[in-house]
Simulated assay, not measured.
Amino acid sequence: MINIAGHLRRHGRIWRAVAVQALKRDAQFRAQAWTTALVALAEIATGLIPVLLIIRSSPQLNGWTGGQIIAVTGTFQLAMGLINAFVAPNLTRIDAYVRTGELDTVLIRPASAQWLTTFRWVQPASLTGALAGTALIIVGLWGTPISPVGVLAAAVVFGCGLATIAAVWANLAYLAFWFEAASFIHNVVLSALTAGRYPVAFFPSAIRVVLIFVVPIGAAATLPVQFLSHGVDPVLLAGVVGAAAVIMVLTRLHWRVALARYSSASS
């Protein structure tokens, strides 16, 4: 137990240093940081246009009110803001690590190589989108009675959805150990995630399953709002938590298999 605690403290200190370095980098290159923030806000504005058109044409659709649909858009933007800040800057670099041999410098460091390749880089300016998404959630759910159980369930399903998205993306990124050209995967993932902008109730049943359990942007975007406004579904909550646990174990195993195939630049 002591070793585990020390292990967690060491990685916590490393991540804190990474976050401080990222903030200093954004402060040094302020123009780039402002551009990233403005792009995030522009994406939110353009993403809201079809949502507002839907609301205007029908005040309620498939059991979802206009405010709830806006809240889903906000949760989606919150999720994407966190993904763009903490996940995308790392996983999009893995294929370069493998091709150039830069992974060697990661493997020799006194920390988990998988952890470093997942959390080494942070892009604080992308959190602008997360803050704007939070504002949309508040606006969309304003006046909706919310229970403490609903808030807890929403937080759990949101966290599990984000973790599963990161794990699925990581598994696809690890294909770089087998294929030289794996960079296209990241564009595919980002394109698939855009479906989370709308409630999963808008999609056919088969697509709903994919958006909740396979590419779980629906779990991160729709289910939190659903649990807050429509009530908690214990079976669905347990399914999302279970799926997150399974994919985490599989991701760890996949990393070990992929790393065994790696030929370092010095070999």
Rank of each mutant, 00 (worst) to 15 (best):
R13I: 15
G129Q: 15
I4K: 15
A176I: 08
L78M: 13
I55H: 04
R261S: 09
I137C: 10
A244W: 02
S267A: 01
I165V: 00
R109Y: 09
F177V: 01
T222F: 08
N171F: 01
P216Q: 03
V122Q: 11
L52Y: 08
G81Y: 03
G161E: 02
I69T: 14
A181Y: 06
Y97W: 13
A221I: 01
L223I: 14
D26A: 11
W115D: 04
V235K: 11
M248D: 11
I55G: 00
I207P: 06
A42V: 06
D233P: 04
C160V: 02
V87R: 13
F177K: 01
T92L: 12
R56K: 09
L52P: 01
V246S: 05
L91W: 01
F202E: 00
S126L: 03
W34P: 01
A153C: 10
S57C: 12
A245C: 08
N3G: 06
A201R: 07
Q28C: 07
L172K: 05
I247E: 05
N187Y: 08
A201H: 02
G63L: 08
G47P: 04
A96Q: 07
P145L: 09
L8R: 07
G12Q: 10
E102K: 14
G161V: 00
S58R: 15
R109S: 14
E102I: 14
W255C: 00
I4L: 10
V257A: 13
R208S: 13
